[in-house]
Design a protein around this nucleic acid. Sequence first.
RNA 1: GGUCUCGUAGCUCAGUUGGAUAGAGCAGCUGACUUCUAAUCAGCAGGCCGCAGGUUCGAAUCCUGCCGGGAUCACCA
Length: 592
Amino acid sequence: MIDIIALIQDKVMEGVEHLYQEKIDRSKVALNTTRKEFEGDYTVVVFPFTKAAKKGPQQVGEDLGQFLVENVDQIKAFNVIKGFLNLVVDDAYWKQFLESVVNSEDYGQHPSNGKKIMVEFSSPNTNKPLHLGHIRNILLGWSCSRIFEAAGYDVIRTQIVNDRGIHICKSMVAWQQFGNGETPESTGLKGDHFVGKYYVAYNNEDKKQKAALEAEGKDKEETAIMKSARDLLQKWEANDEEVRKLWASMNGWVYEGFNATYDKLGVRFDKLYYESDTYLLGKDAIDKGLEKEVFYKKEDGSVWIDLEDAKLDHKLVLRSDGTSVYMTQDIGTASQRYDDYKIDEMVYVVGDEQNYHFKVLFEIMKRLEAPFANGLYHLSYGMVDLPTGRMKSREGTVVDADDLVEEVIAEAHEGTKERGDLGAFSEEEQKEIIRKIGMAALKYFIVKVNPQKRMVFDPKESVDLQGNTGPYIQYASVRINGVLQRAAKEGLDFSGAIDPSLNLETIEKDILLQIYEYPNVVLNAAKDYDPSVIASYCYNLAKNFNKFWHDHSIFNAETEAEKIFRLKMSKIIGYTLKNGMDLLGIEMPERM
RNA sequence: GGUCUCGUAGCUCAGUUGGAUAGAGCAGCUGACUUCUAAUCAGCAGGCCGCAGGUUCGAAUCCUGCCGGGAUCACCA
């Protein structure tokens, strides 16, 4: 299949050189799809050539249009409006395109590019359950990892589990003091919620003790429970057997809970890194950096890097007592990952409050001349706000991930009772379909927003099933299933050739152009680390299909040739929607 | 204060390497189910693209300044 876009660009360059004896750069050839109001498929902007031509835009358009029609078989007509050269591509080209993809169920999957990329996402602390902010992180990370796979990368999904530190010690101390030996089993609580309960208990107790200290006129920062937590942290670092045992079992409970949530969200990881294993890493790199004079040592023994020439200030990489900071650990972990997998690229999906941290980290890796330094990327995403403002754990406005999932599924259940057509399914199957619809609503709502932007999460809107939503796109796909199933049932074979004399409707051509673009859309989404590109694409394709469906009956088409053509169209639209939504982590139901 | 980032319809968001009269959805109003699923489709209404300059044949898009929101600038993670 000839790449029509590249072909037009080549011929435009050729045409300008032939007509006006001047070579132009490929980047000067702006090629857009033609706007709806005008006739044509692709539009060349001719303004950039007027200088070379020494003619007005209208004349240049006429010249170039004439040249293209004469020299490119696939272009059968043109018109020029105000400096825009609209080109009409021969229907035969689009029919041939449809034939070439109609049996490619994996349409949009690029061949391997030989590159290995690691995507880190989620990476929660282990002292409380996941919330809405994690959901954005997880969905972005998962979707990007799928997009990279579709773009031809070998992908390794990972997270760094923040399993040690003062936060988990707080939950531990509260459990010791108030737990009476309870477990998730004995209470029927999900593990992460169980541990989170003790984190809350810790904070309540700490607050109480602070108030008491303040009343006595003492330093309110030094509460007894805080001291106990710090004591636990020290014992943990000293490898105290009992403390380690408690730590392991509490983390174990949390992991069970997290895994249940990951399952519900449909994500998994290939490799887990635990902070308890990596928190001491990075010191070798600091030593080497000191030798190379990338770092410098202050009199107190602390080690720093001067990044002022990169507009980044001075940054500590090792404390005066020789212990690591977060940065040290990240330097070490990055190298560890490279050693483990020989990755070409590494993407960190982390909130935008850490933009500065990653700028510094990447700059350090460059100065240390790490072989993967140029493949590092921080996929920074904005915080999720509620219509009432920010989520604040102190004010109890944090939206819990598990509650949210339950809520959207309940809403999908209501919607299905009203509108659904699931009579033919068993209860079990119906539940599964409703789950897919609810999850589609939630996931699409989050992933359709450009990652770098802060977003407002309105729970009411997130469960909408109409308009620019996940279920809208699922509905288009379900309609397609309907026609294809009917075709199968009627024994209708539409594998034959498309009638060469068939005229394409405008909407049919629009759809073919759009599907033609899909593989490029995947590459662009990968290049920009941006799932929202795929989301808009799927929505627009579903919208076009719904219009097509409304305006043109498939089974009651006027001719057999039209019916066959439209069935082929339906099939490829179905694949493309399914493949696109899969890149967002969204599953398609059979019916709804 | 320094650095970074965002600002588009009442609300939530799109808007390709700068291209034609800035687009969707929701909310509001009007129409369309005897038909392959109306979770749909068609229409009306809604805009100083934060403000002011600049670059350009052409700016929501690039540059500068200002205004407004957010983040960050720890021997915290």
